[in-house]
Nucleic acid binder design. Sequence first.
RNA 1: GGCGCCAUCGUCUAGCCUGGUUAGGACGCAGGGUUUUCAACCCUGUAACACGGGUUCGAAUCCCGUUGGCGCUACCA
Length: 469
Amino acid sequence: MKIRTRIAPSPTGYMHVGTARTALFNYLFAKQNHGEFLLRIEDTDTERSKKEFETDIVNSLKWLGLNWDEELIRQSERVSIHKEYLAKLIENKKAFYCFHTIEELEEEQKNQALEKISFKHECEHKDLSLDKALEKLKKENAIIRLKTPHKKITFKDLIRGEVEFDTNLLGDISLAKNLDTPLYNLAVVVDDHETQITHVIRGEDHLPNTPKQILIQEALEFKQPEYAHLPLILSADRSKLSKRHGAVSVNEFARLGYLPKAMLNFMTLIGWHPKDDKEIFNLEELVKEFDLERVQKAGGIFNIEKLKSINNQYIKELVPAEIAKFIAPYLDMYNPTEAQLIKVAHLFKDRLNTFSEIKDLASFVFALPTYEIKLLSWKDAPKEKIKTNLQIVLSILENISEDSFDIDTTTTELMPKANNIGRGDLLWPLRVALSGMAKSPSPFEILDVLGKKESINRIKKALEKLNES
RNA sequence: GGCGCCAUCGUCUAGCCUGGUUAGGACGCAGGGUUUUCAACCCUGUAACACGGGUUCGAAUCCCGUUGGCGCUACCA
């Protein structure tokens, strides 16, 4: 039988990295078994579901390169199928109408809390005959529940091994608000069955749903899929990763300038590890090496530092022309030329953890920042000395023609003098005059990016500042 | 409260199944090299088997308990 997995996000928010990682693991497992990976939008909750979020989910998956097979499935478009199964369950007396109000249910829960027992609704309406229930339905509101049998449910989780639940603690599971409004557990079971999903790989937060879904499968006489519950991605405080801890949606990471490859690589490493010490993988390698049995049981913290480090490794593999494309949006306000972007890309290639960092690192190239005069001084060198040294540099640079004003030439012309006077004494003031910053790439690299005219301007400006002070 | 899941450096983890390792790697951090500064790169260092009982010649590894953490507990998904 063909292996089929799915990612089933609900469009009630932007695509979360946790969902992305679940998608990734589903994708890897399906692909390494030459199977299929499906996308199903779980939008049965019409109140909370938004088209905007569905679009974001689709875009995020595409951005990551996790392409799904077949048409996207929308649960909301399948209610007639859900309805058929629901009707069948009622007809077979495996499901029934529950007429209790939300207030009554809340009251029941309160009492159960007092008794210190688990919250559940064991409904006496299940004994009502269908005729009577239908009659009652004309005047009263009701939801459809499963007649939960009393038994122990044991299933094998591919990651955790045998897991056991006692259905006595579950109560009669809610299936639908009415025939046309299915609820999560019913919809999942029906759709997984209909689309022939063989492996349900999802977050650990769904573990308590599994016995409920197995019960529904049994009532519907469906084949039970294999289950694998992934460890959760945690925040630094070890709670489930959420919005208040900073960036959590895939689109935010895209905007911050992370590469999809790096995201994929990093997400795999939360909760999974290969046999050897290799850490950098592309998707194809991952498909080959991934092993569900090697997935961790304990939750893992989303370590942004590690992500940055991996992203940095991927950025270093790119050529400047590629980097130029990625950094362009962040430098937009300066209207840089293509040539400038490539020079800047070359300059900062090794320094970038994320593309968005380029704005802080490289804006000095386009606009000299204002800086303190004393920054020009290397190890508290006196002002006069700096002035003299900058004059020396200036006269050397002015003698280089505009055409040969590149790293090689400026280096050969300037270095003998620097070695003579002292590298720090000559090169530090030059670098600050050019960048206005305490930390930056080397003066030779900056000279090259700035070009002769702008370089000379900036050095003159530094000299003016020194004279005025 | 109830139920379930989990537990190796600060973090991600290898090792656990099939007891015998100087408990390994990566990120971070610290120091050094290179360097005018920063980054990158190279080298070195730092730091962990939650606790208590068993079983065993021997336990990170197997068993039990304790503690702790997390998840779920809807007419959300």
